[in-house]
Amino acid sequence: MSRQKRQQNLIGYLFISPWLIGFSVFTAWPFLQSLWLSFTRYDIISEPKWVGFANYHALFTQDPQFWQSLQVTFTYAAVAVPLGILCGFGLALLLNIRIKGQEIYRTLFYIPSIVPAVATSVIFVWIMNPQIGLLNGLLKTVGIIGPNWLNDPTWSLTSLVLISLWGVGGSMVIYLAGLKDVPLSLYEASLVDGASAWHRLKAITWPFMTPVIFFNLIMGVIGSFQYFTNAFIMTNGGPQDSTLFYSLYLFNRAFRYLDMGYASAMAWILFVIVVGATSILFMTQKKWVQYGNN
Protein backbone atom coordinates (compact mmCIF):
# COMPACT_ATOMS: atom_id res chain seq x y z
CA MET A 1 0.00 0.00 0.00
CA SER A 2 1.41 3.34 -1.01
CA ARG A 3 2.09 6.04 1.52
CA GLN A 4 -0.62 8.22 0.03
CA LYS A 5 -3.15 5.40 0.25
CA ARG A 6 -2.26 4.76 3.91
CA GLN A 7 -2.61 8.46 4.61
CA GLN A 8 -6.02 8.47 2.94
CA ASN A 9 -7.11 5.49 5.01
CA LEU A 10 -5.90 7.16 8.17
CA ILE A 11 -7.85 10.31 7.36
CA GLY A 12 -10.91 8.18 6.62
CA TYR A 13 -10.67 6.40 9.95
CA LEU A 14 -10.13 9.73 11.69
CA PHE A 15 -13.36 11.00 10.20
CA ILE A 16 -15.35 7.99 11.38
CA SER A 17 -13.52 7.75 14.70
CA PRO A 18 -16.28 9.53 16.69
CA TRP A 19 -18.70 6.83 15.59
CA LEU A 20 -16.18 4.05 16.16
CA ILE A 21 -15.40 5.28 19.66
CA GLY A 22 -19.10 5.76 20.45
CA PHE A 23 -19.94 2.30 19.14
CA SER A 24 -17.12 0.65 21.06
CA VAL A 25 -17.88 2.39 24.35
CA PHE A 26 -21.67 2.53 24.30
CA THR A 27 -22.64 -0.55 22.28
CA ALA A 28 -19.90 -3.16 21.83
CA TRP A 29 -18.51 -3.03 25.37
CA PRO A 30 -21.91 -3.13 27.17
CA PHE A 31 -22.93 -5.89 24.77
CA LEU A 32 -19.99 -8.06 25.78
CA GLN A 33 -20.26 -6.99 29.40
CA SER A 34 -23.89 -8.18 29.50
CA LEU A 35 -22.75 -11.65 28.36
CA TRP A 36 -20.47 -11.84 31.36
CA LEU A 37 -23.16 -10.40 33.64
CA SER A 38 -25.58 -13.11 32.55
CA PHE A 39 -23.36 -15.59 34.40
CA THR A 40 -23.32 -13.50 37.56
CA ARG A 41 -25.48 -12.37 40.42
CA TYR A 42 -25.59 -8.59 40.04
CA ASP A 43 -27.89 -6.03 41.64
CA ILE A 44 -26.14 -2.82 40.44
CA ILE A 45 -25.03 -1.95 43.95
CA SER A 46 -22.69 -4.76 44.90
CA GLU A 47 -19.95 -6.32 42.75
CA PRO A 48 -21.09 -9.00 40.29
CA LYS A 49 -20.50 -12.52 41.59
CA TRP A 50 -20.00 -15.48 39.26
CA VAL A 51 -22.87 -18.00 39.48
CA GLY A 52 -22.27 -20.03 36.32
CA PHE A 53 -25.40 -21.10 34.48
CA ALA A 54 -27.71 -20.53 37.48
CA ASN A 55 -29.63 -17.70 35.79
CA TYR A 56 -30.17 -19.71 32.61
CA HIS A 57 -31.11 -22.79 34.60
CA ALA A 58 -33.70 -20.84 36.63
CA LEU A 59 -35.15 -19.29 33.50
CA PHE A 60 -35.63 -22.57 31.68
CA THR A 61 -36.73 -24.71 34.59
CA GLN A 62 -38.29 -22.54 37.31
CA ASP A 63 -39.87 -19.51 35.74
CA PRO A 64 -43.33 -19.93 34.19
CA GLN A 65 -43.50 -16.19 33.43
CA PHE A 66 -40.44 -16.54 31.20
CA TRP A 67 -42.29 -19.08 29.05
CA GLN A 68 -45.46 -17.00 29.17
CA SER A 69 -43.56 -13.93 27.96
CA LEU A 70 -42.03 -15.97 25.13
CA GLN A 71 -45.44 -17.25 24.11
CA VAL A 72 -46.94 -13.75 24.11
CA THR A 73 -44.06 -12.37 22.07
CA PHE A 74 -44.06 -15.20 19.51
CA THR A 75 -47.84 -14.93 19.10
CA TYR A 76 -47.58 -11.19 18.57
CA ALA A 77 -44.76 -11.60 16.04
CA ALA A 78 -46.64 -14.34 14.19
CA VAL A 79 -49.78 -12.19 13.83
CA ALA A 80 -48.65 -8.57 13.81
CA VAL A 81 -45.76 -8.90 11.34
CA PRO A 82 -47.69 -10.57 8.47
CA LEU A 83 -50.68 -8.32 9.14
CA GLY A 84 -48.45 -5.24 9.07
CA ILE A 85 -46.89 -6.35 5.78
CA LEU A 86 -50.28 -7.07 4.28
CA CYS A 87 -51.72 -3.71 5.31
CA GLY A 88 -48.60 -1.72 4.42
CA PHE A 89 -48.30 -3.35 1.03
CA GLY A 90 -52.03 -3.03 0.39
CA LEU A 91 -52.00 0.64 1.31
CA ALA A 92 -48.98 1.25 -0.92
CA LEU A 93 -50.75 -0.38 -3.86
CA LEU A 94 -53.82 1.79 -3.30
CA LEU A 95 -51.80 4.96 -2.86
CA ASN A 96 -49.78 4.16 -5.97
CA ILE A 97 -52.89 4.65 -8.07
CA ARG A 98 -52.89 8.06 -9.72
CA ILE A 99 -55.82 9.90 -8.20
CA LYS A 100 -56.50 13.50 -7.24
CA GLY A 101 -54.98 14.39 -3.89
CA GLN A 102 -52.63 11.37 -3.93
CA GLU A 103 -49.90 13.23 -2.00
CA ILE A 104 -52.34 14.29 0.68
CA TYR A 105 -53.52 10.72 1.22
CA ARG A 106 -49.94 9.48 1.38
CA THR A 107 -49.08 12.13 3.94
CA LEU A 108 -52.16 11.34 6.02
CA PHE A 109 -51.35 7.65 6.14
CA TYR A 110 -47.71 8.31 6.92
CA ILE A 111 -48.19 10.84 9.75
CA PRO A 112 -49.31 8.30 12.42
CA SER A 113 -46.02 6.43 12.06
CA ILE A 114 -44.07 9.44 13.32
CA VAL A 115 -46.29 10.02 16.36
CA PRO A 116 -44.27 9.00 19.46
CA ALA A 117 -45.21 5.61 20.89
CA VAL A 118 -46.05 7.13 24.28
CA ALA A 119 -48.54 9.59 22.76
CA THR A 120 -50.03 6.82 20.64
CA SER A 121 -50.48 4.65 23.72
CA VAL A 122 -52.22 7.35 25.71
CA ILE A 123 -54.58 8.11 22.81
CA PHE A 124 -55.45 4.45 22.30
CA VAL A 125 -56.12 3.91 25.99
CA TRP A 126 -58.99 6.36 25.54
CA ILE A 127 -60.06 5.16 22.10
CA MET A 128 -60.31 1.62 23.46
CA ASN A 129 -61.98 2.54 26.73
CA PRO A 130 -64.87 0.10 27.06
CA GLN A 131 -67.28 2.61 28.57
CA ILE A 132 -66.55 5.96 26.97
CA GLY A 133 -64.15 5.03 24.15
CA LEU A 134 -64.56 6.04 20.53
CA LEU A 135 -64.25 2.48 19.24
CA ASN A 136 -67.03 1.02 21.38
CA GLY A 137 -69.09 4.13 20.70
CA LEU A 138 -68.91 3.38 16.97
CA LEU A 139 -69.69 -0.28 17.54
CA LYS A 140 -72.67 0.70 19.65
CA THR A 141 -74.17 2.67 16.77
CA VAL A 142 -74.45 -0.61 14.85
CA GLY A 143 -75.81 -2.48 17.83
CA ILE A 144 -72.61 -4.17 19.01
CA ILE A 145 -71.47 -4.02 22.60
CA GLY A 146 -67.71 -3.70 22.23
CA PRO A 147 -65.34 -5.73 24.38
CA ASN A 148 -63.25 -4.51 27.27
CA TRP A 149 -60.36 -4.24 24.84
CA LEU A 150 -57.31 -3.75 27.01
CA ASN A 151 -58.64 -5.25 30.23
CA ASP A 152 -59.92 -8.57 28.96
CA PRO A 153 -57.31 -11.31 28.54
CA THR A 154 -59.06 -12.62 25.44
CA TRP A 155 -58.86 -9.23 23.72
CA SER A 156 -55.81 -7.46 25.13
CA LEU A 157 -53.18 -8.96 22.79
CA THR A 158 -55.51 -8.56 19.82
CA SER A 159 -55.91 -4.90 20.79
CA LEU A 160 -52.15 -4.37 20.76
CA VAL A 161 -51.91 -6.07 17.36
CA LEU A 162 -54.59 -3.74 16.01
CA ILE A 163 -52.80 -0.73 17.48
CA SER A 164 -49.59 -1.83 15.74
CA LEU A 165 -51.33 -1.12 12.43
CA TRP A 166 -51.41 2.54 13.41
CA GLY A 167 -47.72 2.76 12.48
CA VAL A 168 -47.98 0.91 9.19
CA GLY A 169 -47.37 4.15 7.26
CA GLY A 170 -43.62 3.77 7.85
CA SER A 171 -43.37 0.53 5.87
CA MET A 172 -45.93 1.83 3.38
CA VAL A 173 -43.47 4.52 2.27
CA ILE A 174 -40.80 1.87 1.67
CA TYR A 175 -43.25 -0.20 -0.41
CA LEU A 176 -44.19 2.91 -2.38
CA ALA A 177 -40.53 3.52 -3.18
CA GLY A 178 -40.23 -0.13 -4.24
CA LEU A 179 -43.26 0.14 -6.50
CA LYS A 180 -41.58 3.00 -8.34
CA ASP A 181 -38.81 0.61 -9.36
CA VAL A 182 -41.13 -1.82 -11.14
CA PRO A 183 -40.58 -1.20 -14.89
CA LEU A 184 -43.67 0.29 -16.49
CA SER A 185 -42.85 -1.51 -19.74
CA LEU A 186 -43.74 -4.84 -18.12
CA TYR A 187 -47.19 -3.57 -17.16
CA GLU A 188 -47.70 -2.19 -20.66
CA ALA A 189 -46.69 -5.50 -22.22
CA SER A 190 -48.96 -7.46 -19.89
CA LEU A 191 -51.87 -5.15 -20.71
CA VAL A 192 -51.29 -5.83 -24.40
CA ASP A 193 -51.38 -9.54 -23.58
CA GLY A 194 -54.71 -9.03 -21.77
CA ALA A 195 -53.51 -9.76 -18.21
CA SER A 196 -55.95 -8.94 -15.44
CA ALA A 197 -55.06 -6.73 -12.43
CA TRP A 198 -54.67 -9.83 -10.27
CA HIS A 199 -52.30 -11.44 -12.77
CA ARG A 200 -50.26 -8.25 -13.04
CA LEU A 201 -49.96 -8.15 -9.25
CA LYS A 202 -49.01 -11.82 -9.05
CA ALA A 203 -46.62 -11.99 -11.99
CA ILE A 204 -45.02 -8.54 -12.00
CA THR A 205 -45.54 -6.49 -8.86
CA TRP A 206 -45.08 -9.24 -6.31
CA PRO A 207 -41.78 -10.65 -7.66
CA PHE A 208 -40.30 -7.19 -7.97
CA MET A 209 -41.43 -6.28 -4.47
CA THR A 210 -40.15 -9.38 -2.69
CA PRO A 211 -36.78 -7.83 -1.71
CA VAL A 212 -38.65 -4.91 -0.09
CA ILE A 213 -41.11 -7.26 1.60
CA PHE A 214 -38.19 -9.35 2.84
CA PHE A 215 -36.55 -6.26 4.30
CA ASN A 216 -39.75 -5.27 6.10
CA LEU A 217 -40.25 -8.84 7.30
CA ILE A 218 -36.80 -8.92 8.88
CA MET A 219 -37.24 -5.50 10.49
CA GLY A 220 -40.75 -6.41 11.64
CA VAL A 221 -39.63 -9.65 13.29
CA ILE A 222 -36.75 -7.93 15.08
CA GLY A 223 -39.07 -5.10 16.17
CA SER A 224 -41.68 -7.56 17.45
CA PHE A 225 -39.20 -9.31 19.69
CA GLN A 226 -38.26 -5.93 21.16
CA TYR A 227 -41.87 -4.77 21.59
CA PHE A 228 -42.12 -2.80 24.83
CA THR A 229 -43.50 0.75 25.00
CA ASN A 230 -47.18 0.23 24.19
CA ALA A 231 -47.48 -2.76 26.49
CA PHE A 232 -45.62 -0.97 29.28
CA ILE A 233 -47.93 2.04 29.15
CA MET A 234 -51.25 0.50 28.20
CA THR A 235 -51.43 -2.85 29.99
CA ASN A 236 -48.20 -3.30 31.93
CA GLY A 237 -48.26 -7.00 31.11
CA GLY A 238 -51.82 -7.61 32.28
CA PRO A 239 -54.52 -8.69 32.47
CA GLN A 240 -53.46 -12.10 33.67
CA ASP A 241 -50.07 -11.85 31.93
CA SER A 242 -51.82 -11.80 28.55
CA THR A 243 -49.58 -8.97 27.34
CA LEU A 244 -46.46 -9.85 29.28
CA PHE A 245 -44.02 -9.31 26.42
CA TYR A 246 -40.49 -10.61 26.72
CA SER A 247 -38.89 -7.15 26.83
CA LEU A 248 -41.37 -6.00 29.45
CA TYR A 249 -40.60 -8.96 31.68
CA LEU A 250 -36.89 -8.38 31.13
CA PHE A 251 -37.32 -4.73 32.14
CA ASN A 252 -39.19 -5.72 35.31
CA ARG A 253 -36.49 -8.19 36.28
CA ALA A 254 -33.78 -5.62 35.67
CA PHE A 255 -35.24 -2.42 37.06
CA ARG A 256 -38.07 -3.44 39.42
CA TYR A 257 -36.30 -6.35 41.09
CA LEU A 258 -32.72 -5.18 40.42
CA ASP A 259 -31.79 -8.62 39.14
CA MET A 260 -29.36 -7.57 36.40
CA GLY A 261 -27.69 -10.96 36.03
CA TYR A 262 -31.03 -12.64 35.42
CA ALA A 263 -32.11 -9.86 33.03
CA SER A 264 -28.80 -10.12 31.14
CA ALA A 265 -29.39 -13.86 30.70
CA MET A 266 -32.84 -13.02 29.32
CA ALA A 267 -31.31 -10.46 26.97
CA TRP A 268 -28.87 -13.03 25.58
CA ILE A 269 -31.60 -15.60 25.09
CA LEU A 270 -33.53 -12.92 23.20
CA PHE A 271 -30.44 -12.19 21.12
CA VAL A 272 -30.09 -15.86 20.19
CA ILE A 273 -33.79 -16.06 19.30
CA VAL A 274 -33.61 -12.96 17.10
CA VAL A 275 -30.45 -14.17 15.37
CA GLY A 276 -32.06 -17.59 14.90
CA ALA A 277 -35.30 -16.20 13.50
CA THR A 278 -33.43 -13.85 11.17
CA SER A 279 -31.15 -16.66 9.98
CA ILE A 280 -34.12 -18.90 9.20
CA LEU A 281 -35.73 -16.10 7.21
CA PHE A 282 -32.49 -15.54 5.32
CA MET A 283 -32.34 -19.26 4.52
CA THR A 284 -35.85 -19.14 3.05
CA GLN A 285 -35.21 -16.10 0.90
CA LYS A 286 -33.71 -18.10 -1.97
CA LYS A 287 -37.08 -19.74 -2.44
CA TRP A 288 -39.23 -16.65 -2.66
CA VAL A 289 -37.21 -13.42 -2.84
CA GLN A 290 -36.38 -12.40 -6.40
CA TYR A 291 -33.60 -9.93 -6.95
CA GLY A 292 -33.11 -8.05 -10.19
CA ASN A 293 -30.23 -10.26 -11.30
CA ASN A 294 -32.16 -13.53 -11.11
Partner: peptide, 10 residues
Amino acid sequence: FDAVNRFFSG
Protein backbone atom coordinates in the same frame (compact mmCIF):
# COMPACT_ATOMS: atom_id res chain seq x y z
CA PHE B 1 -66.62 -8.26 37.30
CA ASP B 2 -66.83 -6.95 33.76
CA ALA B 3 -69.52 -4.36 34.56
CA VAL B 4 -67.51 -2.88 37.44
CA ASN B 5 -64.34 -3.00 35.39
CA ARG B 6 -65.97 -1.05 32.57
CA PHE B 7 -67.40 1.48 35.03
CA PHE B 8 -64.07 2.21 36.66
CA SER B 9 -62.21 2.33 33.34
CA GLY B 10 -64.28 5.37 32.42
